[in-house]
Amino acid sequence: MLIVDAIATLLGGALLLRFWMQAIRVRPPSSVAQFTFQLSDWLVRPLRRIVPGVGGYDWASLIGAFLIVLLATSVLLLAGWPPQAMLLMACQRFLQWILYGFMALLVVEAIFSWINPHAPLAPFVRALNEPLLRPLRRVVPLVGNLDLSLLVALILLQIANILLGMAFGGR
C-alpha cells in the first residue's frame, strides 16, 4: 500500500500542479514543465478527448488527479471496505492532496526566502502562491517589515485540513 500511495501521490501531485499552473496562467521553467508533462501526458492527452478544457481550465488534469486517487484508494476494496466508503475516502484524500500541495508550495517559498530568494525557481513558486497570499496580504499587516501572510496561509490550510478530517468522519 505504501508504494501505491507514493506513486499515486507523485503522479497526482504532478497532475494538480499542471492544473494549477494552467489555471493561474503561470509559465513554468523548462525543467518543471518537462517533468510535469512527461509524467502526466499519458493520462491527460486521452482525457482531453473526452473532457476538453472549458473556461480556461485544464479539466483533464484535475479529473486525472482524481482518477489516480480513486485508483489508489480502490486498493481498500481488496481489504473489504464497502464501495461507498472507498468513494468518500477518495474524495477526502483528493482534497487533502490539494491542501498539502498548497502547504508544500508555501513551505518551499519560505525556504527560498530564507536561503536564496534569487534562486531560479523562486519567482515560479512565488507566482504559484500569489493567488493564495494576495487576499491575505490585504488583511495581514507587515510586522517589522516581515510578511506574515505566508504563516497565516499555512495555519488556515491546516485548519481546513482539520475541518476536512472532521467532515469525513475523523479519518
Rank of each mutant, 00 (worst) to 15 (best):
L2A: 11
L2K: 09
I7G: 07
I7P: 04
T9I: 09
L10C: 12
L10N: 09
G12E: 08
G12K: 04
A14Q: 03
L16K: 02
F19D: 04
M21E: 14
M21G: 05
A23K: 10
R27A: 15
R27D: 15
P28T: 03
S30M: 12
V32N: 01
Q34C: 12
F35I: 11
Q38T: 13
L39P: 14
S40K: 03
D41G: 10
L43D: 13
V44L: 01
V44R: 00
R45V: 12
P46D: 02
L47F: 01
R48I: 08
I50M: 11
I50H: 04
P52N: 05
W59K: 02
I63G: 00
G64Y: 00
G64R: 00
A65W: 01
F66V: 00
L67G: 00
V69H: 00
L70P: 01
L71E: 03
V75M: 05
L76M: 11
L76W: 10
L77P: 03
L78P: 00
L78R: 07
A79D: 14
A79K: 08
A90T: 02
C91L: 15
R93W: 03
Q96T: 11
I98E: 01
M103C: 10
M103R: 13
A104E: 05
L105D: 01
L105W: 11
V108I: 15
V108S: 03
A110L: 12
A110P: 02
I111D: 03
I111A: 12
F112G: 02
I115N: 07
I115M: 07
I115T: 08
N116S: 14
H118C: 04
H118F: 09
P120T: 10
L121G: 01
A122T: 03
V125G: 02
L128P: 08
L128K: 06
L128D: 00
N129M: 06
E130K: 14
E130H: 15
P131V: 00
R137M: 10
R138L: 15
V139P: 10
V140Q: 04
V140S: 08
L142S: 08
L142R: 15
V143Y: 15
G144P: 04
D147R: 11
S149G: 11
L150C: 11
L151V: 15
V152P: 10
A153I: 06
L154M: 15
I155D: 11
L156H: 05
L156D: 05
L156I: 10
L157C: 13
I159S: 08
A160L: 13
I162S: 14
I162P: 06
L164T: 14
M166Y: 13
M166V: 12
F168T: 04
G169F: 03
G170A: 04
